[in-house]
């Protein structure tokens, strides 16, 4: 397997193209949800809530304590992927039925899609890194580029992931006051 950042770039580009096809008006609704989820996950992770919750559940079911990292990562990843599927499948805070026409529409869709891809791939990468790359997700060490990018993931770009709630709330206000 190649460097993990290649996978990160690939996911970002795929979501950017999805955004280009769907249009920024629909993608912005997903962005609001993703930014709030990143903020809440970061908030819970900073206080160790997610880890403690999974630990408790693992104790109830008698899971191997040595595999707690894998369990926490799988729980967070499944929760996050479930939200991604639901937001892309169901109703979100869509801005309107009308998308921006022409090249500008394609460009803005691409940009917002790339942001969504960054939030998704970046969050999964961050938690994989936090829990020691369980299930041999990373066989070798991180490349210098990978080390560099770790400082620019959604959870590390700001002092606290809860900062993502600010653009999400502003977008929500723009959405509501129309």
């Amino acid at each position: 397997m190649g460097p993990i950042e290649i996978l990160f770039y690939t996911v970002v580009v795929i979501f950017a193209f999805i955004g280009m096809v769907r249009g920024s008006n629909r993608e912005l609704g997903n962005s609001i949800i993703f930014m709030y989820v990143v903020a809440v996950l970061g908030f819970a992770e900073e206080r160790g809530w997610s880890e403690r919750a999974v630990q408790e559940i693992a104790n109830i079911f008698g899971a191997d304590p040595a595999r707690i990292n894998e369990l926490v990562f799988v729980t967070i990843a499944l929760f996050f992927v479930l939200i991604i599927v639901v937001t892309y499948q169901g109703k979100t805070f869509d801005f309107s039925g009308a998308r921006i026409p022409g090249c500008l529409g394609l460009l803005t869709g691409f940009a917002v899609g790339a942001l969504n891809g960054y939030l998704i791939a970046g969050t999964l990468w961050y938690f994989a890194n936090e829990y020691g790359y369980p299930f041999n997700l990373l066989t070798g060490g991180l490349t210098p580029t990978g080390q560099f990018l770790l400082g620019f993931l959604p959870q590390t770009i700001f002092p606290s992931a809860f900062y993502w709630a600010i653009p999400a709330t502003i977008l929500l206000i723009v959405r509501v006051i129309r």
């Binding site: 912005l28 940009a111 942001l115 977008l171």
Partner: peptide, 10 residues
């Protein structure tokens, strides 16, 4: 950037 993109859609 997000507000600039969202504004014309709004």
């Amino acid at each position: 950037l997000l507000v600039l993109i969202a504004w014309p859609v709004r």
